[in-house]
Write a protein that binds this DNA or RNA. Sequence first.
DNA 1: TCGAATAAGTTTGATGGTAGAACTTAAAAC
DNA 2: GTTTTAAGTTCTACCATCAAACTTATTCGA
Lengths: 390, 390
Amino acid sequence: MPRSAVGQSSVREANLAIVLQTVCGAPEPPSRADLAGRLTMTRATSARLVDELVEGGLVDEIDPLVPRRGRPARLLLPGSGVGALGLLADTDKVVARVVSLRGDVLAQVRRDVDMIGLDPDEGLAHVARAGREVLDAAGSVRVVGTALAIPGVVADGRTLVRAPNLDWTDVDLAARLGPVGRAGSLLEVGNEADLAATAVVEEAPGRVGPWPDFLYLSGTRGVGGAVVSRGRVVTGEHGGAGEFGHVCVDPSGPVCPCGSQGCLERYAALEPLAAAAGLRPDQVGSIGERAAAGDERCVETLAHLAWALSVALASVVNVVGISSVVLGGHLGRLEPYIRDDLRARLDARVLGARWAPVQVQAASDTSSSPADGAALLVLRRLLEHPVGWL
Amino acid sequence: MPRSAVGQSSVREANLAIVLQTVCGAPEPPSRADLAGRLTMTRATSARLVDELVEGGLVDEIDPLVPRRGRPARLLLPGSGVGALGLLADTDKVVARVVSLRGDVLAQVRRDVDMIGLDPDEGLAHVARAGREVLDAAGSVRVVGTALAIPGVVADGRTLVRAPNLDWTDVDLAARLGPVGRAGSLLEVGNEADLAATAVVEEAPGRVGPWPDFLYLSGTRGVGGAVVSRGRVVTGEHGGAGEFGHVCVDPSGPVCPCGSQGCLERYAALEPLAAAAGLRPDQVGSIGERAAAGDERCVETLAHLAWALSVALASVVNVVGISSVVLGGHLGRLEPYIRDDLRARLDARVLGARWAPVQVQAASDTSSSPADGAALLVLRRLLEHPVGWL
DNA sequence: TCGAATAAGTTTGATGGTAGAACTTAAAAC
DNA sequence: GTTTTAAGTTCTACCATCAAACTTATTCGA
């Protein structure tokens, strides 16, 4: 539905955004002339736009490193003095990071906090304190906005509808976050797994990595995830997408607290895995090594896990047509030990596997990535609409 | 990834598209002044753009019906002399329709053909003949392009990768369709279920109906469907999305020809339903009435169907966060008889059902809608980029 | 050391599109 | 028949990009 017409000021705004995005997305720092060539605009126009971005601090100029024939180009990099604050309120910890437009983590605080049992105001106080500390540490950086990652369903990018593990319901997080939320003018709240997936998509602000389409599956206390299509997280109508944990593996399987039966969570979450392997939950990460060392029970546990994942994921792959799977959390940790089994089972179950074999990968790290993703989300807004910050 | 900069010609193109889309999407025919107000452009600009569209036949002018104070407005309607050819090659029939920009079916041919066993050239000859006939019947209409709906996986909107029921593999349909495909300069091929879903989304070209997000599930020989998000069909990385028929209902369920076990298709496709009810496949549509009349076996069949659908759909709803379901084909026919049961089971299985209860609906008709959807697909291209046709 | 070659960046005027405001037109209301 | 209302038109101003000539900074070669 078209809302509004386009004027020539929109042209300038659009081109500013395009130039900034190109600078951020480029593998090598481009010059004004490079941009002109790549974007089919004249050098005059490119220079005009770049000058404006440099003036506003969104783009930095550096002198060329390798000498070349001709007048040396002034190379352009994303502004290092501009960043965003990414926050994570998890069940067992709080993370705050300031990430620059260049993708550098300028400051970070990570603190173990048992959030379970805390009410929203108490929990958010921990988050806000961590946020203030990194803002201080980041010093002179211009922070354009804040985003908060939370393990729950978020509506409209502002309100927490329900976070089952924290037992928080209907909290206007954006309003209750206090002054830290007002660092910069952007403020967003997002689902933890969605934002972790965002961090997988973008290697740096505006630079989309090699996988624009994948299913992200994160194993923690529960099993969450996200569907990423064309570089964007699919949030669904009401923000309730990505509940991989409650895909049905076996309708006559174990009862799930959600009221259903045989949910993936009952096979792949931390506790069921620990129980199956006869270990403590914090030992789940070692199941792979134990299995490799010959522990029969762990071998069986992994086989059962691969089976359950294959049933659930095959259904999803058949419906959304995305055949790359990225595993995070303890599932990422176990991925090397189930990869081949899982892939073989998926190829047998996925209809299109003949021409698009299913890829399985582990996300490198996981514990802070929702905070990175939160910062990236804010910076993405900046990249989409830079005019306001010039 | 930004490809190219924006110039002022893009402004004109964008505004032409916006004006045309607004004319097509408006519930009541607007005037030039209405458009100016709604799109925040001046009356001067709106008039200039509209004149160009009228000149090119994409917009028609009519005199106002109800007299009003002031100078009477000339009302604007989508051009009735412009249309697209939608084709459907199904297993048992061929359909060809010319649909105008206004949404009217200007001509139609529908012919029962047993396509099973025919090779692509033989089958496409039937399609092409039907296409030629409707083009003749449509007479002076300017046909901007053709689209073909086919029950199979389509890549890049051109090539059929695999149509299991027709047993066609790797056919460049766009090339082999012959002159009918070159009626107008647009030519696309799409999956039958995807295009049927497109016809559900758009009531008329450019007019998105009340459900921009839904899962479309169509029961025929198999069970296909589409995920529609924000008014767009999700095609996946390689066009292989929407295979609802192979969502796993029960991993220890009946064996499926796909190589897996307990696929939804084994519970909800025509033949399994007929077998369960002890009827011929062509009698499946009457299971609802028979059950209502007290036929125990049909009652049980419907209950089992609702159960299987609920298991499969709940998983999908939990992952993609879309909680409206539209049923087509024989599933649409049976929908009134399973609706309540299905909805109750879904609400029990869907995690977010508390704040977003699952909606279940039947698509009104089904047999020709892929052809309508095909035509709508072409007309959508026209609406997105009208400059080429002026 | 100096000039030619090369390529980046800058200036200038032309072009094309929308914005704004005054003007014209067509019909109903009085 | 005059007034009122609102649609549509005309004209000028403005703004962003384009095109092409021009300036600048460096390397290469004599």
